[in-house]
């Protein structure tokens, strides 16, 4: 099993301004996080490896690819890293755009350092949670994938709260056969009881939108 918690979080920083990269790197490093900074969105895209949890501090106005453009490019590539925008010239339209596209926060330069660090920590936590969720889901999905076709059918009926008898009728098989399938499913899915089994399946089927949900709640 993957050990998420053991991997050190990494803060990515993309800003075309050296002073910002330098000062923020020093600041964030002083709080114990590792920082990797890039002077352009392109450089980030070329070097990003999604193996560690973390977040992205992203400048809005940059020559060539802007912060917004990088954000949508990441979304296109299916990279789900929490983004904190840092802008020298905050603009309502800019921030609205960033939030709509799923940014975690939008901070205006010069920013309150404590607030920034706080947001970074929150973002990292979110990312870790998101990654754990993904791993859990993948585990469950793995178990589901190991079921036979017939077992998957039976599982589907269990999730829809059909009794054994009903399932047997629907599938046109004997009650006993359903019982055998059910036992096999419970074992393969490592479920203690039917309630846990159903929770597992439903959890696996819900989209991984924790970050968004948490922000709005």
């Amino acid at each position: 099993m993957m050990s998420i918690n053991n991997s050190t979080p990494l803060v990515y920083l993309v800003d075309d301004e050296f002073a910002i990269r330098d000062s923020l790197t020093l600041l964030i490093e002083s709080t114990g996080h590792a920082v990797k900074s890039f002077e352009s969105a392109e450089a980030f895209l070329n070097n990003y490896v999604p193996d560690k949890p973390g977040c992205l501090l992203l400048d809005v106005r940059m020559p060539l690819m802007t912060g917004h453009e990088l954000q949508s490019e990441l979304s296109n590539r299916g990279i789900n890293i929490p983004i904190i925008f840092i802008s020298g010239h905050a603009d309502i339209a800019d921030s609205a755009k960033a939030f709509r596209a799923g940014a975690v926060d939008f901070l205006e330069k010069p920013f309150n350092n404590e607030l920034l660090l706080e947001r970074i920590n929150e973002a990292i936590k979110k990312d870790i949670a998101f990654r754990e969720e993904c791993v859990k889901k993948r585990r469950i999905q793995d178990r589901i994938d190991h079921l036979t076709t017939r077992e998957k059918e039976v599982l589907g009926l269990i999730v829809k709260s059909h009794s054994n008898k009903e399932s047997a009728k629907i599938l046109n098989i004997s009650n006993r056969t359903v019982d055998v399938h059910r036992a096999s499913i419970m074992e393969k899915m490592q479920a203690e009881n039917v309630a846990e089994l159903i929770t597992m399946v439903i959890y696996c089927e819900t989209p991984s939108s924790t970050a968004l949900e948490e922000r709005f709640h």
């Binding site: 910002i20 000062s23 020298g88 205006e108 010069p110």
Partner: peptide
């Protein structure tokens, strides 16, 4: 101006 100010703040 925001850039140096931001940097100063962080430094």
């Amino acid at each position: 101006v925001n850039q140096p100010l931001s940097a100063i703040s962080s430094y």
